[in-house]
């Protein structure tokens, strides 16, 4: 009786797994396909150069000291080190003119660490598609 019970207990999971074989696979065929990014995902920042007034609020609130104010085109703008950033979005929340926003862009890998420093000109580019 006991033996029968354990054999039955083993057959059932095997059956379940066998059934999965005929289902549509869960796996995403990355890199040829990827999930559609969520609209409000907190990814790379985007800076609107016209709107930014250079007040530096974003750099003061950042918990990771990722934002530095730099000179660019004769004005001060934030420069974000994406390698320090934790993508929390506090800087965006705090920005008084809504110049800083976040884009869903997340594919940010680099061969070199210094490429992760995004100056105002890089920040003001829209995501390449």
């Amino acid at each position: 009786m006991n033996l029968l019970k354990s054999v039955m207990g083993l057959i059932k999971p095997a059956k379940v797994i066998f059934r999965i074989l005929f289902k549509k696979p869960m796996t995403l065929k990355f890199p040829s396909e990827s999930l559609e990014p969520v609209k409000d995902y907190r990814g790379r920042h985007f800076l609107n150069l016209e709107k930014c007034v250079g007040c530096g609020m974003c750099s003061r609130v950042c918990p990771n000291n990722a934002i530095e104010m730099v000179k660019f085109n004769g004005k001060t703008y934030p420069q974000i080190h994406l390698g320090k950033c934790c993508f929390c979005g506090l800087c965006v929340e705090r920005c008084p003119t809504k110049a800083l926003t976040m884009t869903p862009e997340a594919m940010l890998s680099f061969y070199d660490k210094s490429l992760a420093i995004y100056g105002p000109s890089k920040l003001s580019q829209t995501a390449e598609k």
């Binding site: 019970k5 354990s6 054999v7 039955m8 207990g9 083993l10 059932k12 999971p13 059956k15 379940v16 797994i17």
Partner: peptide, 15 residues
């Protein structure tokens, strides 16, 4: 229910 069959009532897991 599927996990019940697969895992929670699996004889190996119980053993």
């Amino acid at each position: 229910v599927f996990y019940d069959d697969l895992f929670f009532k699996n004889a190996t897991v119980i053993k």
